[in-house]
Design a protein around this nucleic acid. Structure first.
Lengths: 229, 229
DNA sequence: CGTGGGGTTGATACAGTTCAAGATACGTGG
DNA sequence: CCACGTATCTTGAACTGTATCAACCCCACG
């Protein structure tokens, strides 16, 4: 990877505090790869070769079992993924594929583990990162166990609106079937749930979702920072 | 905490490799507390005061939302819990209560963060611990999203049998209602699911579960290391 | 144009919950 | 040690949430 491209990665909390030397060691071993859309990046069950960092585009993390498939997360720039597998040198629990054309920075897993062993600041940053991700999954599990699919959708809309700047107009950048899978429901069910939310201040048309009445939606969704982050 | 009680804690992967001095700093600030059964230890939403380590007895981690409650994990000796909240100094996402009389080692959160900042071996051990827990929650979420409740029960039986030594005779040490909640179902449903598993080599009576035909059970359960750990 | 994939809608089936009633186990106090 | 009261567990019936199957619509794209 060329040195002028390092800055955005260097700015990540995970790399911000480590020594210049060790950061260079990581980056010199790394390479930036372009992928087309809908390409498999990693497969669950394989041993980790690289720590992946999404620099551009979006990546789906998903898992399969017994003919079923579910989306676990959708990762956008600039974020690392499959950090836990790399650190423990154990098989991936998730598969990953590109959803759009993407640029992925790939750092050899061996190098990550080496630098991790000798750079205390990097190790500390890793703890923070992992603790944060851990909490994300705790929230996801609570969300799944304590809410109905309609409630999950309602809260996703509120949250996504916040991420997109609170304009009360959400533009979907992924297929609805993917969204359905991420929210733990079938595409048919997402359709019906969206229709149902019309009674709670939500208007939807094609790839756009509009919140007509935030209060009504929030009243139905019962948002909770201990579940939604 | 008295020095002769340190050894079991010192043997944990989390503390094994740190300096004698820093370990002593943690332990000198810590104290061992006895609790009766069914007592609240921490409440979700509170800020962490202590890192908890179960030394004896069992502890339930659970969460509430909108009148519902679900068990997220049941922790047995010797294990830390709520590590992520302590490290990030953010509110607990889970509540905890004792299920039996218990001894809990409580290390002040401030001390943990201090030692974490100056002991690289401790920081590295923490990464490993967190990565491991993280993967546990990934598995839990996959389990929840990709399996029916009966399948979750079947796999729990297989797994619990392994933990109890593979004798094909499982002794429940918690209420069935707790088990139901941990497996993401109602007590009524657990009853019915157990009855259903009779057709797949499982016999249950009171607090005992017997596997009469492992092959038949496994055939139904479709165990998968990427979901069951 | 036609063709195909995503999206919606409807009908039906299944999984899981809820409510209610009985059965069983369990600790307590007599 | 037994009798009682209480909580847990089981079973049944009705209901809700969600999935499945199928038809149809719609738009994008060759």
């Amino acid at each position: 990877m060329r040195q002028q491209d390092w800055s955005t990665v260097r700015a990540l909390p995970l790399f911000r505090d480590m020594s210049e030397e060790n950061f260079a060691a990581l980056m010199n071993a790394a390479f930036l790869q372009r992928f087309p859309a809908h390409v498999s990046l990693i497969a669950e069950g394989d041993l980790p070769d690289f720590l992946h960092i999404v620099v551009e585009g979006s990546v789906e993390l998903f898992a399969r079992h017994d003919g079923q498939e579910t989306t676990l997360d959708i990762v956008r720039p600039v974020t690392t993924f499959i950090l836990a597998a790399v650190i423990r040198d154990e098989v991936y629990l998730k598969s990953a594929r590109t959803l759009s054309p993407a640029q992925i920075l790939m750092v050899p897993a061996r190098t990550v583990r080496e630098v991790f062993g000798r750079d205390a600041a990097f190790a500390r940053a890793m703890v923070n990162e992992l603790a944060d991700r851990y909490r994300g999954f705790v929230r996801a599990l609570k969300n799944e166990k304590l809410r109905t699919s309609t409630e999950r959708l309602a809260n996703w809309i509120l949250q996504e609106d916040r991420h997109q700047g609170g304009t009360r107009t959400i533009a979907l950048d992924i297929d609805k079937r993917k969204l359905a899978s991420r929210l733990g429901m079938t595409p048919e069910n997402l359709s019906r749930n969206l229709a149902q939310l019309a009674a709670h201040g939500v208007r939807s048309s094609g790839r756009g979702i509009e919140i007509k009445d935030v209060a009504a939606l929030a009243d139905f969704a019962k948002p909770n920072t201990l579940l939604d982050g």
